[in-house]
Design a protein around this nucleic acid. Structure first.
Length: 112
DNA sequence: GTCTTGACTTCGG
DNA sequence: GCCGAAGCCAAGA
């Protein structure tokens, strides 16, 4: 870590998303709050760029505050979020995470 | 250089 | 409880 010019805020987002355990999900707001980005939109931008920089990023575990798979449209149709989440043991219904609050993974409480 | 859009969140009606 | 608007920061045109 602590790279000179490569220390972009997405790097922290990617690293945090990678730390998300299987079967768990998190929200943009919690990531932005933990990284002190100030806006959840920064997380969305980071994940948007992650398609080129970090294709292996488990972004399917990141959803909006409603527990909705808002970014599923940005995923590959053959590897949709529902499929990956279901593979992780997460139940998804109507593009929404079942028992979202129970599966919600907060970095501040887990790491800190 | 400014303006618009974007995988969001929160407040107000 | 649901819909509309504002706020926020960053990147692309």
């Amino acid at each position: 870590m602590c790279k000179d010019k490569d220390t972009h805020y997405y790097e922290q987002v990617y690293d945090l998303v990678r730390l998300i355990p299987s079967g768990r999900v998190t929200t943009y707001g919690h990531i932005a709050d933990y990284l002190s980005l100030g806006s959840a939109r920064m997380v969305g931008w980071a994940l948007n760029q992650s398609h080129s920089t970090m294709p292996d990023l488990p972004a399917h575990r990141v959803v909006n505050r409603k527990g909705e798979l808002s970014g599923r449209h940005h995923f590959d149709p053959d590897y949709s979020m529902e499929s990956r989440l279901h593979n992780d043991g997460v139940e998804v219904e109507n593009n929404k995470i079942v028992r979202f609050e129970e599966l919600l993974w907060i970095p501040m409480e887990q790491i800190f």
